Simulated scan of single mutants.
Amino acid sequence: MKIRLEHQNIGAAVMQFAEHEQFTAINALKLNGKPVSNAFLINSHVAVLCKYATAPNATGEYVFTFTKDQMNTLASLLPKHDSLFFGLVCVEAGEICCLTKAEFEELLDYRKESAGKSESQYAILVTLQVGSSFRVYVNAAGRKGKYAFKQYTVHRKAFPNRIFG
């Protein structure tokens, strides 16, 4: 099998799982018997979905877009996994931001409230300044450069520790 860029970038997250002292097993996360792309079941009970962004955009944001198909998959996965995390790989920074299921859902709710409706896809934005934690947010609908409601601050060492905590 040819190595794709996706393998290299998501592999960074997999290595951090494997090197953690509480790690015991990793399997593909499946939905209706089929593997979910870039999703893993860690230690038989923790679901982790990984995405990567190669570099920040012109305003310094790593953009993680969740397409309509991915949102449909998530709609099926979220109710089935109480322990679900998102590993957002910021490639150029060499860091991985770890969001909980609750944080992810709340960010989507902020965007929905800002837009006044559900949308077919969503973008989670992550910034990282030297010596600081991640800032994670969604843009306010129709207001470029303004975030909707609340930003999350996520410690750099949260991945993979949150997953095993």
Rank of each mutant, 00 (worst) to 15 (best):
T59M: 10
E61C: 11
K112N: 13
V91L: 00
S114E: 02
L108A: 08
Y62N: 02
S114N: 04
L77G: 03
V63E: 12
A39T: 06
G116Q: 04
A75N: 13
A58T: 10
G94P: 03
S44C: 11
S76F: 13
F85K: 03
E105M: 14
K101Q: 09
F66Q: 07
T65P: 08
T54K: 13
S118T: 13
K68E: 14
L74P: 01
F40Q: 01
S114Y: 03
K112W: 11
L108N: 08
G60D: 07
A75S: 15
L78Y: 06
V89H: 02
F66K: 04
D109P: 07
K68T: 11
T65I: 10
L84S: 06
H45Y: 15
V89N: 04
E92L: 13
A93P: 04
H45K: 14
P79Q: 07
S76W: 09
G87M: 05
G116T: 06
A75Q: 12
E61D: 12
G116N: 06
K117N: 11
F40M: 05
E106N: 12
Y110D: 08
D109L: 13
V89P: 01
E105T: 13
G87V: 04
D69R: 11
E106L: 14
C97M: 04
P56D: 05
E61L: 09
C97P: 03
S76M: 12
A93N: 07
R111A: 12
C90K: 00
Q70A: 15
L77S: 03
F104N: 01
C98P: 02
F86M: 09
K51P: 03
K117H: 12
E92R: 14
I96P: 01
H45E: 13
V46T: 15
E92Q: 15
V89I: 10
L108K: 14
L77C: 05
N57P: 05
A53P: 00
S44M: 10
